[in-house]
Simulated assay, not measured.
Amino acid sequence: MRPLLIAVLMSLCFLQTSAQVFRPAYDAAADRLQRQYNAGAYDSIFLSFSPAMQRALPPAATAQFFDNLKAGAGNISTQRFASERGPVAIYRARFERGAFFTELVLAPDGRIAGLMIKPDTEAPLPEMPPNQTAMTFPLQGEWTVFWGGDTREENYHVTVPAQQGAFDLVITGPNGRSFRSNGARNEDFFAFGQPLLAPCDGEVVVAVDGIPDNRPGVMNAQVPLGNVVVLRTAAGEFAVLAHFRRGSVAVRPGQAVRAGERLGAVGNSGNSSEPHLHFHLQDRVDLQTAQGIKCYFGELRVNGAVRTRYSPVRGERISAQ
């Protein structure tokens, strides 16, 4: 599975120049960009682009980029100069739902000639509250934690607020691989089609099916969760289980389920490069505005030993006790 950043490269039409940053001009441009972005004035942002930037990002593409950024991160709360690299001024920006770096290049006439917005991987991570709802392991047999834990090295999800405590789970064989043969088909992967169970009692609030399973190595970033089920618990926590096999989702919105009840089967739909389960807890149903909740399972077998009230980390082999 390949990580995907929450904010991606918008455009880099950087000038081939040895010019250095002239701080007053850059600070004014960054401040203007913040005001226009927060006000939703994307047409004004487009007009502040150099001709090359305007050709690279027409008005509709500019609006789409900033709409997506705002849906995921919210408005910019604060922004301050961090450093410079040749003609690039780098600002550390605190958004409502995350920290980002804004890299800015100005043309000689003061227009924006290059712009990149990417997650600030140096920012301290917020502390997550633990789950209040009892959680059971939602899979049968032994699984390997591909991504999981509290650090960026253990878990690439940690920079995405809702998914900060997420797990990606696969089945690996004796040779450490997650597939037999050459892994060209979903059916080659040990996880594909495995039963996927409710981790807790709850009400189904989201149930999506019909998204095709990807060919291994190809991801569908347009529908990141793919086929997905979201459960709401009595404590107001939301359990998100993603990438179900197409046609396998066995529940519907409004249905009450009990822990251990079959929800469907593991698949490879959405932003997934191989069959696996993505599982996390969050504090509200909207993925774009939610904050993550750290998940502790009531009891697990971890690398052969029984652990209670445990949150697994990358590389561990886990199963229900």
Rank of each mutant, 00 (worst) to 15 (best):
R2I: 12
P3E: 10
L5E: 13
V8N: 13
M10F: 14
Q16V: 12
Q16M: 08
R32H: 05
A39L: 05
A41Y: 08
P51R: 12
M53H: 14
R55H: 13
P59M: 10
G72W: 02
Q79E: 08
R97I: 00
G98Q: 08
A99K: 02
L106H: 07
A107S: 14
G110A: 11
R111C: 06
A113Y: 03
M116A: 15
T121M: 06
E122A: 07
E122T: 14
A123C: 02
L125D: 00
P126A: 06
P130T: 12
T133F: 01
A134S: 13
M135W: 03
P138C: 10
P138I: 09
E142Q: 11
W143A: 05
Y156W: 10
H157C: 05
V158N: 00
V158Y: 02
A166E: 01
F167W: 09
I171A: 08
F179L: 05
C200N: 11
E203W: 01
V208R: 11
L225A: 14
N227R: 02
V230I: 14
L231K: 07
T233S: 15
L241M: 15
A250L: 07
V251P: 07
P253Y: 06
G254I: 12
V266F: 09
S269V: 08
D283I: 12
L287E: 07
A290C: 04
G292I: 01
I293D: 02
K294Y: 09
G298Q: 15
L300W: 01
L300E: 00
R301S: 12
T308M: 11
I318K: 04
A320V: 02
